[in-house]
Amino acid sequence: MGLPMPGDSLGDALAHAATLLLEASSVDDTLDAIVRSAAASVPGADHVGVTLAHADGRMEALAATSDLARELAAVQESIGEGPCTFDPDTAGIVHVPDLWHDERWPAFAEVAAQRGIRSKIGVRLYGDSASQAGLSIYSARPNGLDEESVQIADVFAAQAALAMGKARVIDELHDGLRTRQRIGIALGILMHRYSMSEERAFAFLTRASSHGNVKLRDVAAGVVADFVAGLEQPGGG
Results as ranks from 00 to 15, higher is better:
Ala53His: 05
Arg168His: 13
Ala167Tyr: 11
Thr19Gln: 13
Lys166Pro: 02
Ala33Ile: 03
Phe86Ser: 01
Gly57Ala: 03
Tyr194Asp: 12
Leu62Trp: 06
Leu62Arg: 06
Asp87Trp: 02
Arg178Leu: 13
Ala63Cys: 06
Gly127Tyr: 02
Arg104Tyr: 00
Trp105Ile: 00
Glu103Val: 12
Ile93Glu: 04
Gln132Met: 15
Ala91Lys: 06
Arg58Trp: 00
Gly184Pro: 01
Tyr194Phe: 13
Ala38Val: 07
Tyr126Gly: 07
Leu14Val: 03
Gly235Met: 12
Ile152Asp: 07
Ala203Tyr: 01
Ala229Asn: 13
Phe86Gln: 03
Gln114Leu: 12
Thr19Ser: 13
Ala220Thr: 09
Ala74Lys: 07
His54Gln: 14
Ser129His: 12
Ala160Gly: 13
Ser9Asn: 12
Ser131Cys: 08
Ala107His: 08
Val48Cys: 04
Ser131Asp: 07
His192Asn: 14
Ile189Met: 01
Thr19Val: 15
Gly82Trp: 06
Ala53Pro: 10
Pro43Arg: 08
Leu162Trp: 02
Glu110Arg: 15
Ser9Lys: 07
Phe86Val: 02
Gly80Gln: 04
Val224Asn: 04
Val27Ala: 07
Ser9Phe: 11
Ala133Gly: 10
Phe204Leu: 11
Asp12Thr: 15
Leu10Glu: 13
Asp98Ile: 04
His192Thr: 14
Leu205Lys: 06
Phe108Asn: 08
Ser136Asn: 13
Arg104His: 08
Glu198Val: 14
Ala107Ser: 06
Gly82His: 01
Leu216Phe: 00
Arg217Pro: 01
Ala91Ser: 08
Gly184Asp: 07
Gln151Asn: 03
Leu190Phe: 09
Gly188Ala: 00
Ala158Arg: 15
Ala45His: 00
Ala133Lys: 08
Gly49Trp: 09
Gly188Lys: 00
Gln151Tyr: 09
Ala55Ser: 15
Ile79Ala: 01
Arg178Asn: 14
Met164Cys: 07
Val96Tyr: 05
Val155Asn: 09
Gly122His: 06
Val111Thr: 14
Val223Trp: 05
Gln114Cys: 12
Gln76Phe: 07
Gly184Lys: 09
Val219Phe: 04
Tyr138Asn: 05
Gln159Glu: 06
Ser25Gly: 15
Arg141Gln: 15
Ala203Glu: 14
Arg168Phe: 09
Arg115Gly: 13
Asp46His: 15
Ser119Ile: 10
Ala13Glu: 02
Leu99Ile: 02
Ala40Phe: 01
Ala15Lys: 10
Pro106Val: 01
Phe156Lys: 03
Pro88Val: 13
Phe108Leu: 00
Thr65Ala: 02
His211Pro: 03
Pro43Thr: 03
Phe156Ser: 00
Ala74Phe: 06
Ser129Lys: 09
Glu172Ser: 12
Ala163Leu: 04
Arg124Cys: 00
Val228His: 05
Ala69Lys: 08
Ala167Cys: 03
Leu62Gln: 04
Asp128His: 09
Gln159Thr: 06
Ala161Asp: 11
Ala39Trp: 09
Arg104Asn: 04
Ala113Asp: 08
Ala186Trp: 13
Met1Tyr: 09
Phe204Ile: 03
Gln233Pro: 06
Glu148Gly: 15
Asp46Leu: 01
Ala24Asn: 04
Asp28His: 08
Glu103Asn: 10
Glu110Met: 12
